[in-house]
Amino acid sequence: MSASSARRTWQRFSSGERLARFTVFLLMAAALAFSMRTVQVIPEFLLDSPTQVMDLLRRMWPPDYRYYPQGIHTALMETLHIASLGTLLAIVMALPVGVMGANNIVRIPALNWLSKLILVSSRSVNTLVWALLFVAIFGPGPLAGTICIGFRSVGFVGKLFAEALEETDPGSIEALTAAGAPWPSIFIKGFWPQVAPAFWGISLFRWDINVRESAVIGLVGAGGIGMVLDTALNLFYWDRVSIILVSIFTVVILAELLVTAIRKRIL
């Protein structure tokens, strides 16, 4: 019998694969059903929620615009300062840690790992937790917020900086080495020109994130607009809450636009 006369069938999955896929679907359905029971949705509250949302929006409207100059403006500026100074602090700390983490610059694995450990610890702790920690150390206020933002951002900036360093073209580094350049000169004239756009891009992006994050950390007492928001929430001044949210929204949008414009110019 020739091969061409045989009826050849084709199916995307083999029967074993089909069984495996069915099992996975079954498990997912079971997990969903189990979760629904554990979260204990109360049907009355669920049905009630549209009314509640409408009620909240009605209390928020109209926003209390007169509150902006007396209560919000200073706090908002403080938030921007926390974000900017925190980012600056992060940049200063990220430079040495990033260089230490790049295995094409520092060829000692122990130091690479130490750098990775620092960077991961910075990132693995949430901003709010860092804030709680530094409020406990420095007391409530913008100083705790700034340090918190700095420590949280080192991991982000340092990791991406180290990766940018590792992706540099080894050829130009070899050329400078062959010319007898000392290490600092190789870094300044070989590595830095190649990573500078990435470095500034990363820092700006982090500043953008930090503007948003520093609006939140005030909730745990680390200064800025978040503290004002917290007070308004606790006192049920919903018209103030709405103007605060609008202010934060505006600042975040402006920061985003600014960062996009600058990035376009430096890249």
Binding site: D169, G171, E174, A175, L176, T177, A179, G180, A196
Partner: peptide, 21 residues
Amino acid sequence: LRHARRKIGMVFQEFNLVERL
């Protein structure tokens, strides 16, 4: 060694310039 390397010029197959300078 660095001082000795100054006396040895080198030209590369892939040029090895610093592209952004």
